[in-house]
């Protein structure tokens, strides 16, 4: 329990830091944010001053940050410059679509990567292992946005098996999820393969076999369980990348999600939206890794000490 509490406490400065980064974003833009927002609208100096007061930009920096934190505490992420709607509302109404794609890609990565790594790891240097290694080496190298286009060309244009754009059906999710998940499947294959080879050298595997434990049990109950810890940690660490990858895949397939929203906001310099996305994605990533650490700590008590002492 102290492990969980200590891990929780270590997260607080990181969370504060993320809010600080998001907050400073508006001040990193060269020039006056109020002028940036009103750019092209022929605003009078009075209007600019008025907007500055409205945004609280005339306050000292520390006061602005405290106000920002106060807003966040109430779940308020500010208002979009463009639509004047609540950023929190706009983000959360689009989030389910992005999270669905992230989850689907993660599922592909695990469903392909773990079995491939398992079989390759039990038979190192076999033909299967060589093929699996080649596939995973290629999987890391092919950019997902390119794989997505190749898959559309093959399965939508030529074979007409799957829809090319997202039509809301589960079939429309297949190409985006596979193209995004493939690279992470490759990472997992390499990882699990390496771990299984290492675990098979362990004394406990020998003793399990000596006790007459069937081979499938040695693999699934012993070697896989011990390999699962780095695999879970890796999935947690890659979560943020998969999430941003999902956002970009959405842009390719014209899915209405966080990605296309964020992309247009960046081109429009709609800073509150970018700030809100930074806070939501950053906090989500930290919390996911917190959960992962707690799970790993529960599975393997040895890691608790390592994680607790920085």
């Amino acid at each position: 329990m102290t492990f969980v509490l200590r891990r929780l406490a270590s997260v607080i400065p990181v969370l504060l830091g993320i809010t600080l980064v998001a907050f400073l974003l508006i001040h990193l833009i060269p020039g006056d944010p109020a002028k940036v927002i009103l750019f092209g609208s022929n605003a009078t100096p009075e209007q600019i001053d008025q907007l500055r007061a409205q945004l609280g930009l005339d306050q000292p920096l520390w006061k602005q940050y405290l106000d920002f934190l106060g807003q966040l505490r109430r779940g308020d992420l500010g208002t979009s410059y463009l639509t004047q709607n609540s950023v929190a509302h706009e983000l959360f109404s689009r989030a389910p679509s992005t999270l669905a794609l992230t989850a689907a890609a993660l599922l592909v990565a695990i469903a392909v990567g773990v079995p491939l790594g398992l079989v390759a790891g039990t038979r190192p240097n076999s033909l299967f292992d060589k093929v699996a290694r080649a596939v995973s080496f290629l999987g890391v190298a092919v950019p997902y946005f390119f794989l997505a286009l190749v898959m559309v060309l093959l399965f939508s244009v030529d074979l007409d098996w799957l829809p090319a754009i997202d039509d809301g059906t589960p079939a429309g999710l297949v190409i985006p999820a596979v193209s995004l998940g493939w690279g992470y499947a490759a990472i997992l294959t390499r990882l699990v393969r390496g771990r299984i080879i290492d675990e098979y050298r362990g004394e406990y595997v020998k003793s399990a076999r000596a006790r007459g434990c069937p081979e499938w049990r040695v693999l699934l109950r012993h070697a896989l369980r011990n390999s699962s810890i780095p695999a879970i940690t890796t999935i947690g660490l890659q979560f943020g990348n998969i999430l941003t990858g999902a956002a970009i895949t959405e842009v390719i397939f014209g899915r209405a999600g966080l990605g296309s929203f964020l992309a247009t906001s960046i081109t429009n310099k709609n800073i509150p939206v970018v700030q809100g996305a930074v806070v939501v994605i950053g906090v989500g990533y930290v919390l996911i890794n917190l959960v992962v650490d707690v799970i790993v700590g529960a599975v393997d008590p040895r890691t608790r000490v390592a994680a607790g002492t920085p």
């Binding site: 400065p13 990181v14 830091g17 993320i18 600080l20 980064v21 943020g240 990348n241 999430l243 941003t244 990858g245 970009i248 930074v278 994605i281 950053g282 990533y285 930290v286 890794n289």
Partner: peptide, 8 residues
């Protein structure tokens, strides 16, 4: 903090 944010 920076590591907590995805590279992209």
């Amino acid at each position: 903090v920076l590591l907590a944010l995805p590279v992209l």
